[in-house]
Design a protein around this nucleic acid. Structure first.
Lengths: 192, 192
DNA sequence: AAAAAAATCCCCATTTATGGGGGTTTTTGG
DNA sequence: CCAAAAACCCCCATAAATGGGGATTTTTTT
């Protein structure tokens, strides 16, 4: 029986590429792809995919959308993905993977789907303020500069930073920067 | 007359995607794509492309390979590309661009190619030691830790860091981390 | 072999950051 | 309205980084 695959990916190039690489495989039935998350839940109900191949940046929403259903969720990765996000997926498809490798991962994910991808537990979450502070840290501002920008005392900024560190477990500015980058909190233009 | 386009991109998915998006366009003639840089120069001589669409990570080599020839070089970008690399290209094709946008950029790049893409001048360069220090900084190590790892005194590490700052103009650890990430000096696994 | 560049090392004063502790005031959700 | 969470503020000691200033020894290039 064919594995039903739903691709969820905003890039037309990649969707086209995947479709043309997978469409004639004997053990795969491609559902028509989704380019965004808007109607994902409806698509899942209607299409009954066994496996979803999802842009890694849409990780959390996609996993939520399949809400307990037995769907193997594969992350589609362009470049950098943090371990936390990675752990949401059964497996990772890298954009540089060969066609054979991708088919292989899809088939394996389908068998995975007997145990549904349970949303990972105990995920910390940063508060609004912590997130804004993190962003400024990742932009390279000092505590004093951040304090001025946010109109609070440096004590407050330091407090938030302590919380960020204890929640994420990341101590260094470098690590926090990567974290912010990976979570799309900042982009390449931070390099003044 | 059709614009001759050479795609240089290691990812099969992306190449397939681009080929299927571009192959039937009336004003574009696709040369068979290259997946790596090995025979690029020969391919350029043989195929006489007007435009090259090149993975941005291969920027420097690709521009060098077209050595003064009148070729419009477009950078193909997955995610993050630093301004310096960006400046090597006539224009940037983002992986999320639509088919129409890509065709448009190709056509414009073809007219560009009357003035050949001259490699940017005055590029500073980090020395070997500076680069290794930068990498460790971007991994989040302290000067002391770096000194131990490299078996030099912290004074030396600090010296190197001063040089890095004066050469790159980037003062913060956050900025240096982004820089290292963009230049593929470190990868996602830095998040312990 | 001489000059230039890279790599190494040192000191000092000042600024920032870290890690620990303690709080109060707003906001938010039930 | 009340409890919990978030946001805010403060102090201290220590660690680390920054921004100046030097210097010597290796390597590399000419």
């Amino acid at each position: 029986m064919k594995t039903r695959v739903l691709i969820v990916e905003p890039s037309q190039i990649i969707v086209e590429g995947l479709v043309h690489m997978l469409q004639d495989k004997p053990n795969i039935k491609l559902l028509s792809p989704e380019y965004n998350l808007q109607y994902l839940q409806e698509r899942i109900v209607a299409g009954k995919p066994d496996v979803m191949l999802v842009n890694a940046n849409m990780a959390a929403q996609a996993v939520k959308a399949c809400g307990g259903k037995k769907i193997g969720v594969l992350g589609l990765v362009y470049q950098y993905v943090d371990p936390t996000t990675r752990s949401l997926f059964c497996d990772i498809v890298d954009i540089r993977d060969s066609g054979v490798a991708i088919v292989d991962k899809i088939v394996r994910a389908a068998s995975y789907s007997s145990k549904p991808c349970e949303p990972t537990t105990d995920r910390y979450e940063l508060t609004k303020r912590e997130t804004t502070v993190l962003i400024e840290v990742a932009k390279g501002l000092t505590n004093k500069e951040i304090a001025n920008k946010l109109n609070v005392s440096t004590y407050t900024v330091i407090s938030h930073r302590k919380n960020i560190v204890s929640k994420t477990g990341i101590k260094s500015v470098a690590g926090l920067t990567v974290y912010a980058l990976l979570n799309n909190l900042i982009d390449e233009n931070v390099l003044e």
